[in-house]
Design a protein around this nucleic acid. Structure first.
Length: 360
DNA sequence: GATGTTATTGTCCCTTACAC
DNA sequence: GTGTAAGGGACAATAACATC
């Protein structure tokens, strides 16, 4: 068990490494109720992150992790206090190290927490558990909307491999009006236009505007790089796993794209939402992975190669119906995201109060 | 020797720059 | 328009040293 197994308040068992049995002390096996903490890492943002063991886990923890085992305190109450802003703020203050950030046992030991009576601890834990459950339920709902979108694609168009609806096949080129590269201008913290880069496209096929940079573009060149709502954006250069990330620009704000993105606009035969779903399907991801040229760790798919990809050509009416259904799902997803934000705010507020002894 | 702490090295993702 | 070398940042893996 290493620090990368500690996800957002939960433990990920998918990527474990193994050590010889004689190298492991049985005391280092994780037990139900343990809190596993990252104690040494290169990132100040990661240090101190922790996860609660819901069950005994047949795995030991390494030297870069620490474990807090509850004694004379309600374990769920403790679990929530170790997720509080107060805890993370405390860790940021005590962490030390040059390029690697470390926390010591004494830092954990010196972390002061309120200790009300067991009955009060139990009440607080119950309130926070309920608030966390509400938050988790909304998170799950958002994931289910994504699964639903994939199911609708398969229902309407079938598996591209078998093509059970016998749709005509052709290339993406047959559907494209234009495919243009972005600008090679350097990104900056200031500028006239927001500048879309590869990390603004998610692997799942959505836009992520959380990290923006800026660029200046002369008016005469603007039409070449400016994106419009509904443009399909394709990441032509990246690692082998991430090359070919495909999203649809969905903002009304003026933004321009970097040179390693391709802006694709379609003719009357295609709806970009269909093409996006096609390229983000399991089949599409496999095609992209197999066709990219990967040299010195960087993989490429240029605009011509993108347009050479074979794709089903279902009737445009059917593609439009699909896009309408996706739009409805996206709308519901947006509402769920707002609910998630509200339930997270509520949870954090309760957590703050619990830490100050103001909750019950 | 076991455990705890700190430092170095490696890998991946992303950006920049530039040659063709 | 296209491909890719080079390098930085973030994070993980490993090694080395310190302390119990």
């Amino acid at each position: 068990m290493r620090s990368n197994n500690i996800k957002k308040a939960s433990i990920d068992l998918d990527d474990l490494v193994y050590v010889k049995a004689n190298k492991v002390n049985k005391k280092q096996f994780l037990l139900k109720g343990d809190i596993l903490i990252t104690a040494s890492t290169g990132s100040i943002k990661i240090i101190g992150k922790n996860a609660f063991c819901e069950e005994n886990i047949n795995a030991s923890f390494g030297a870069f992790c620490k474990v807090v085992r509850a004694k004379n305190v309600h374990s769920s109450y403790l679990k929530h206090l170790f997720q509080s802003p107060q805890y993370f703020s405390y860790i940021q203050n005590v962490v030390n190290g040059s390029n690697i950030n470390n926390i010591k046992n004494e830092h954990i030991n010196n972390f002061k927490i309120p200790l009300p009576s067991p009955e009060i601890q139990n009440k607080i834990a119950q309130i926070l558990d309920d608030a966390a459950a509400l938050r988790n339920k909304t998170e799950l709902l958002i994931k289910e909307y994504d699964v639903l979108a994939q199911s609708i694609f398969l229902d309407m168009f079938g598996d591209p491999v078998t093509n059970k609806f016998r749709f005509p096949k052709g290339t993406i080129r047959d559907l494209v009006k234009e495919a243009k590269y972005g600008t090679s201008e350097k990104a900056g913290d200031e500028g006239q236009y927001q500048y879309l880069r590869m990390n603004n496209l998610t692997y799942a096929g959505y836009m992520d505007y959380s990290s923006m940079k800026y660029v200046n573009i002369p008016d005469k060149d603007l039409h070449k790089y400016l994106v419009e709502k509904g443009d399909l954006l394709f990441n032509r250069t990246n690692s082998k796993d991430l090359v070919g990330k495909t999203s649809i620009f969905d903002s009304s704000e003026p933004m321009v794209i970097a040179g390693y993105l391709i802006r694709v606009r379609f003719n009357q035969k295609a709806n970009p939402f269909f093409v996006r779903a096609y390229l983000n399907s399991k089949y599409g991801k496999l095609v992209l992975r197999n066709m990219c040229k990967s040299i010195v760790g960087m993989a490429n798919i240029n605009a011509q190669e993108l347009q050479n990809i074979m794709i089903l050509h279902p009737p445009i009416e059917l593609q439009n119906q699909f896009a309408e259904k996706i739009a409805l799902i996206e709308k519901q997803k947006e509402l769920a995201k707002q609910e998630l934000k509200e339930s997270e705010d509520l949870f954090n507020c309760l957590l703050q109060k619990a830490f100050k002894g103001e909750l019950v």
